[in-house]
Write a protein that binds this DNA or RNA. Structure first.
Lengths: 246, 246
DNA sequence: TAAATAGTGTCTCTCAGACATTATCTT
DNA sequence: AAGATAATGTCTGAGAGACACTATTTA
């Protein structure tokens, strides 16, 4: 943009790359090598190049930071952040993306000489002021976004290896949502949702119990019916209380 | 941003202001007075000022275009658009906002000497190539976003005047969704959803039928249970067909 | 055998959709 | 009265949650 009458900003693309490992939700973080916020943990990201789309920039950054081809790793734009003082270097508007992926070996430290590693989300969210920039806010929104999407999309399978058991899938839901789910009802629901799971014919062995059938992700992207997150029990006050909406 | 190593972009904020009038969903559009796309219809918007947040910019633009104080008109950020060639003048990344409002008198032509007026959404969407920039895409996404939100939030009341009947509210759902809803079931659902509606005590008169009780919007923002958009009937194939997911 | 895990069946309650019925106004 | 619109009631079926029960492995 060369017109002098138009305010000029830098546009950054930041990524919240989520995975499930060690029974916890983790996010990919980098240690900042330069000022500002030197030494602090930040979400990986970078500036938009002159000739690329936002989605392209997100895929490029993901490849640079993790070495992975992000062809279909479920990368989705979340929203943008533009507080005037969010970057002390100047005006930076950041477009945040959320990426979900299985627990693959380990990301390679990126070309920026920054160390990329997994960090447990719960721990990061417990320290609101320790992140670089407003990345605590980005992470909060990204996690909430992912949680919401699990209930009505088939996205949970992207946290799983290519073949997985229903117990593994249930564990993903339990970890991301931080709740316990009834194994019986969960089994009935996910096997009943058309296109969610496809049995591969294989079975587990040596787990000290009845072998589980292996599945892979089916063709569906939307989940019908949805897997509900909260057992939304409202009408507990069956008594003579007058109004009861909160 | 003054650092020479960072690519520079203009950041625009565009608004899809939706309302229901004349039994149709309408969107606020301006006629572009300058090149490029001179004479074409565009969504109102403008460039981000150096010291304002994205949300502030959206509110400012809304005030400039409509003369309305957008304090709580349900303005929400939708997503950002950044195709390299979306603006022929140069690199512009646009953050799109969706605003929902009741059918108020009429917007004032803005300070940019552009005429602002309501246009029926259905008609605009039928002509994909007649909009300025990629505003057809923005509008498509904004409408879909609004439709989705109606089902699980109390947002539909923002299309209504301060006091309204349940039939008026149902009309909003029917117009936005383009479907017909059963008046009886709709009545039962919206009156049963806690915090959605509050009876004012008033009633309509002179409508040639039983008077309807007037309501105003309640304190709730989320809808429990949700008002379903599609009568998602799936299991019609009760026969002996083996697999039936699509 | 017991323990452990996988998977099925059953019951109850909520809620959606279809539609009949009653209520209250205007003409 | 008739017609119109508002509101309630009733029935059926889908689906969620609780939980008993069966199935199949390892130790």
């Amino acid at each position: 943009m060369t017109r002098p009458d138009v305010p000029c900003s830098a546009v950054a693309v930041d990524l919240a790359v989520l995975t499930v490992r060690d029974r916890c939700l983790h996010v990919l973080v980098v240690v900042r090598a330069k000022r500002p916020h030197q030494g602090r943990l930040a979400l990986p990201g970078g500036f938009l190049e002159p000739d690329e789309d936002l989605d392209q920039a997100a895929h490029r950054e993901l490849a640079e930071e993790t070495g992975l081809d992000a062809a279909d790793l479920n990368v989705h734009q979340l929203r943008s952040y533009g507080a005037p003082d969010r970057d002390p270097r100047g005006r930076v508007v950041s477009v945040c993306y959320v990426a979900l992926m299985p627990d693959l070996p380990l990301p390679i430290a990126g070309g920026d000489a920054r160390a990329a590693d997994w960090a447990p989300v719960e721990q990061l969210l417990a320290e609101p002021d320790q992140r670089a920039f407003d990345h605590h806010l980005l992470l909060t929104d990204a996690v909430e976004h992912a949680r919401d999407r699990l209930s009505h999309t088939t996205l949970a399978t992207t946290f799983c290896p290519p073949e997985f058991t229903i117990a593994q899938l249930r564990e993903v839901y339990e970890i991301v949502w931080g709740t316990q789910l009834d194994p019986s009802n969960f089994h009935r629901k996910v096997t009943g949702a058309p296109g969610f799971l496809v049995p591969t014919g294989g079975r587990t062995a040596g787990t000290g119990g009845r072998p589980a059938t292996l599945h892979r992700a089916g063709p569906a992207t939307r989940l019908h019916p949805a897997i509900l997150r909260e057992p939304h029990s409202e009408q507990h006050t069956k008594g003579a209380t007058g109004h009861e909406y909160r």
